[in-house]
């Protein structure tokens, strides 16, 4: 099974990858209502993520989900920095594991709710 992680792209994030090759790799989901990039994850990296984060799961598509929001934010930062969707992106995130865990500990207490109508 091939594993991957989905990076959602809102307008702000889209701005940061404008003009790079990543633009061509944007995928449109659900009738074009969602834009995203899929980052490759090897078997070994998948195991490391599941080991490091108790809540992490692999869903029916092979996507790794339920990691801390701090992980997902850093995942996008690494994508933008490395201009890549290869396994080096997740390796870059895992290199900051202590920092992410520290932030994750705080976010497990509180996440600001969005303002909706």
């Amino acid at each position: 099974m091939a594993y991957f992680m989905v990076v959602l792209l809102d307008d702000k994030r889209l701005e940061k990858i404008k003009g790079t090759e990543l633009e061509d790799k944007i995928q449109y989901m659900f009738g074009g209502e969602l834009r995203c990039l899929n980052v490759e994850v090897s078997e070994e990296l998948k195991d490391r993520i599941l080991k490091e984060f108790e809540t992490a799961r692999v869903d029916s598509r092979g996507a790794i989900t339920d990691v801390p929001v701090a992980f997902m934010r850093e995942l996008f930062n690494q994508v933008a920095e490395k201009k890549s969707l290869g396994p080096e992106v997740v390796e870059g995130v895992l290199a900051k594991i202590d920092e992410i865990k520290e932030m994750a500990a705080k976010e497990s207490e509180f996440l600001p709710p969005p303002e909706i109508d």
Binding site: V6, L8, D59, R61, A63, T65, V69, M72, L111, P114
Partner: peptide, 19 residues
């Protein structure tokens, strides 16, 4: 396009309203 509860949870946590 497969729907997954876990994927949706991630979207919600990131503050993105699902379509």
């Amino acid at each position: 396009e497969k729907l997954s509860g876990s994927f949706l949870r991630g979207m919600v946590a990131e503050g993105v309203q699902p379509p």
